[in-house]
């Protein structure tokens, strides 16, 4: 299990690196799809079918939007000259990475090893959701009953994003 996940994650890292270094913007966008669709397989391996269904549809729609944006614009990648600013940026990135890695190692030491129970809330949720909400799918029960505010906030964010896109992309004003 852990080995399969490691191989998939390595595949995702290679896809992400290729996507960031691709010469053509269209191939960069499609290589980003490698990462998204591998995520679907990871969700299936980690016993989360709800997330797998959502992710596979959402990734397709994201790809459609990104390809629609990239297709009619300049597709070739900018020429990267190695100047002082680029060197400063890369060294800054490496510094960030080392510092963050140190703190990540310290933080994950407190977690239980992979595949063991980590959150104490889980048993309460698993035990009581079905009896209190009457929903056989525990995830739906949590999303719409115990964490209703979360869902309301999500719907508001979606509404605001749609309004923002409408506002940004309007060329002709209303008379």
């Amino acid at each position: 299990m852990e080995l399969t996940l490691s191989i998939l994650l390595g595949f995702m890292i290679i896809g992400a690196l290729f996507s960031l270094h691709a010469k053509d913007l269209l191939s960069a966008v499609i290589a980003c799809g490698i990462v998204g669709y591998s995520l679907v397989i990871c969700f299936l391996l980690l016993r989360a079918p709800d997330l797998a269904i959502v992710q596979i549809v959402v990734e397709t729609i994201t790809l459609i939007i990104m390809v629609a944006v990239v297709l009619n614009s300049t597709r070739e990648e900018l020429k990267v000259k190695i100047d002082t600013r680029q060197i400063i940026n890369i060294s800054l990135a490496l510094l960030f990475i080392v510092v963050l890695f140190f703190f990540f190692i310290q933080a994950t030491d407190m977690l239980n090893p992979f595949g063991e129970h980590t959150l104490r809330m889980a048993s309460a949720y698993v035990g009581e959701t079905a009896a209190k909400t009457g929903s056989a799918n525990l995830v739906t029960g949590i999303v719409f009953d115990f964490r209703g505010y979360d869902t309301l906030g999500e719907a508001t964010v979606l509404f605001t994003a749609a309004l923002g896109v409408l506002t940004i992309l309007r060329l002709k004003g209303k008379k």
Binding site: D50, Q55, V58, A122, V143, D150, E154
Partner: peptide, 18 residues
């Protein structure tokens, strides 16, 4: 499997698309 992280990610995926 613990359902709480799944419920969190479910909303996060759709917000990510938006």
């Amino acid at each position: 499997v613990d359902p709480l992280p799944q419920a969190m990610i479910l909303t996060a995926i759709v917000i990510g698309l938006a």
